[in-house]
């Protein structure tokens, strides 16, 4: 395995965090969070990858044929499902916040610290 997927993972995670930290909009934060999450996909898929091997489907191949690791695929699928749930929930919250406050700028939205 080369160094590239590790670097991509670190870059994606870092740039996602940078996006969240510097963001001035809830929707942008949600997008940055998804970038962060995609770093986990890259890492997991690169862990399971084997050079010169096929998909883990043994329909036309005898058992024992080299294949990539199917376990990490299952992990990535679970991760995607969870990510979709969290993103949906966050978008609903952002929508409700916009309805109530007319803004989605985190600098103006602080729980319990609204001045009357």
């Amino acid at each position: 395995m080369t160094l590239l997927p590790w670097l991509v993972t670190a870059w994606l995670f870092g740039i996602g965090i940078y996006g969240i930290v510097t963001s001035r909009d809830y929707v942008h934060i949600i997008g940055s969070l998804s970038v962060c999450q995609s770093s986990t996909y890259v890492l997991l898929l690169s862990i399971g990858f084997r050079w010169h091997s096929g998909p883990p489907i043994f329909y036309e191949h005898p058992p024992g044929t080299a294949s990539v690791d199917p376990v990490v695929h299952a992990l990535v699928l679970t991760d995607i499902v969870v990510g979709a749930a969290v993103t949906a929930l966050l978008l609903v919250i952002a929508l409700q916040v916009h309805k109530r406050c007319g803004t989605t700028d985190p600098q103006q939205l602080r729980p319990l610290r609204h001045t009357k």
Binding site: I20, Y26, I29, L33, I93, Q96, C101, L109, P111, L112
Partner: peptide, 14 residues
Amino acid sequence: LGQSSLEGAFNFTV
């Protein structure tokens, strides 16, 4: 679904 609870939940979630 109050203002503070939405903001608190957003911070908590992220």
